[in-house]
């Protein structure tokens, strides 16, 4: 069985620091699994997400994401891998404010196609229609400037953009922290439903333990990060 994430003896130290921010002896996420990763700020979760995305490179150990050994890929290969296989949703500021919602979503598609070295999909528009309809994004909304959308609308556009390239792993970093309870529940429901439909794994990071119920499994950053326990000063990103 292949894993979405497979980590063995991973450690990462930021430049100019002596103690590793992250030390993970072993962690596996099955394909299609929805994982809730709980941890407060400074627990190293942002670092972990950057490693999973291939933006940062681990100093030691093995890090396999979707059967790609990220440590062995070049920076350019990692960028291409991210464009093709991953969907990333941030806390806030997911969208480029000066593009329309539609252009923001298409931007995700553009990067994927570029990484695949192909011209835009023939069925892209059909897929686009399907996705936006299911996310409740109508034409009028899509043509609006991203900066004029409400936070809830922005989050839906962000989900659409993360899913447009049909990623196999979605990484979400505190995506609900700016939402009220109602929007938050709807957002998580939306994200998980869409992920299930696209057979994508989800790693959802939040400090709010009350959200964990909707996920297959949950794990605490402190359990995961052995190195962190001995560490007094944590990295502040």
């Amino acid at each position: 069985m292949s894993f979405a994430v497979d980590i063995e003896n991973l450690s990462f130290t930021w430049p100019k620091q002596d103690t590793p921010t992250l030390t993970i002896p072993r962690w596996q996420v099955a394909q299609g699994e929805h994982v809730f990763l709980q941890g407060h700020s400074g627990s190293g979760k942002s670092t972990l997400l950057n490693l999973l995305c291939g933006v940062l490179v681990a100093n030691n150990g093995r890090l396999s994401v979707l059967d790609h050994e990220l440590n062995q890929l070049s920076s350019r290969q990692r960028d291409r891998f991210r464009a093709r296989k991953l969907g990333v949703i941030f806390q806030q500021f997911n969208l480029l404010p000066y593009l329309t919602a539609k252009e923001n979503i298409q931007l995700g598609q553009w990067f994927t196609d570029r990484a695949n070295a192909i011209k835009p999909h023939t069925d892209a528009s059909e897929h686009f229609e399907q996705l936006t309809t299911s996310l409740g994004l109508n034409q009028q909304l899509l043509n609006k400037q991203a900066s004029t959308l409400s936070v809830g609308q922005q989050q839906r556009v962000a989900v659409a953009r993360a899913l447009i390239c049909q990623p196999q792993l979605i990484i979400a970093d505190e995506p609900t922290s700016a939402l009220d309870t109602e929007h938050r529940d709807r957002f998580i429901d939306l994200l998980l439903t869409q992920s299930r439909a696209h057979k994508a794994s989800v790693i959802f990071v939040s400090h709010d333990r009350s959200l964990a119920g909707a996920f297959h499994s949950q794990i605490n950053m402190q359990e995961l990060n052995r190195g962190h326990i001995e560490q007094e000063v944590s990295h502040v990103s």
Partner: peptide, 15 residues
């Protein structure tokens, strides 16, 4: 910096 972070997340390389 936010804009750049978004582009990076989408798979833009540093170049």
């Amino acid at each position: 910096q936010r804009e750049i972070a978004v582009l990076r997340a989408l798979g833009a390389n540093a170049f």
